[in-house]
Simulated scan of single mutants.
Amino acid sequence: MEILYTDKAPEAIGPYSQAIEAGGLVFLSGQLGIIPDTGALAHSLAAQTVQALENVSCVLKAANLTLKDVVKTTCYLKNMEDFALFNEIYGQYFGDHKPARSCFAVAQLPKDGLVEIEVVAEKKA
């Protein structure tokens, strides 16, 4: 097992790692729409979704991976009424690559975020 870290994504806000590589898979902890340089959340659902996906991309890059290597995502929204806008932005990032996905509305996210995205990616030999 290897702990992965990049300073291009937000620091973990608790006792966990940004990502762990194990058994040919890379497990990313959930990424909020936190701007790494400031530690603040982006200002809107759209901006937080973009930032969360950028953070995911940066952590994947630390493992020499891209969004094309993602096999599963789990997405958490504060409000399911935001699903259409979230889905539109998510689709722009993943394009024709369509990993398996779950998406849930939750009562509250850390830092009162509006969206959180976690992924599992495959590290090919």
Rank of each mutant, 00 (worst) to 15 (best):
11 E>P: 01
55 N>E: 08
42 A>Y: 01
82 D>I: 07
65 L>V: 07
95 G>C: 10
125 A>Q: 06
125 A>E: 10
89 I>G: 00
93 Y>P: 06
19 A>E: 08
81 E>N: 11
109 L>P: 01
13 I>T: 09
104 F>M: 05
32 L>V: 00
62 A>E: 09
77 L>I: 10
80 M>E: 09
94 F>L: 10
67 L>T: 13
31 Q>W: 03
4 L>I: 15
98 K>Q: 15
30 G>N: 04
92 Q>K: 14
80 M>P: 04
10 P>D: 05
124 K>Y: 08
113 G>P: 00
93 Y>Q: 07
107 A>H: 13
73 T>V: 15
101 R>C: 10
91 G>L: 02
5 Y>R: 14
76 Y>A: 08
29 S>V: 02
114 L>K: 14
101 R>A: 12
88 E>K: 11
29 S>K: 07
38 T>F: 01
111 K>R: 14
46 A>E: 15
77 L>Q: 08
54 E>L: 11
106 V>D: 05
5 Y>I: 07
63 A>L: 12
105 A>R: 14
83 F>A: 05
105 A>F: 05
43 H>M: 04
92 Q>H: 12
1 M>E: 04
61 K>I: 02
116 E>W: 02
56 V>W: 02
112 D>P: 00
15 P>V: 11
96 D>H: 09
77 L>W: 10
50 V>E: 14
88 E>S: 09
38 T>L: 00
46 A>Q: 13
114 L>G: 04
90 Y>T: 04
11 E>M: 11
3 I>N: 04
39 G>C: 06
98 K>N: 10
11 E>G: 02
69 D>F: 09
62 A>F: 07
108 Q>M: 06
109 L>D: 01
3 I>F: 12
36 P>K: 03
31 Q>P: 02
13 I>A: 06
70 V>C: 10
68 K>A: 15
25 L>Q: 05
7 D>G: 04
20 I>P: 00
74 T>I: 13
92 Q>Y: 08
68 K>D: 15
75 C>Q: 11
125 A>T: 09
71 V>G: 09
111 K>Q: 13
120 V>Q: 13
62 A>S: 15
114 L>E: 12
35 I>W: 00
49 T>E: 02
79 N>V: 03
86 F>V: 00
59 V>D: 00
70 V>M: 07
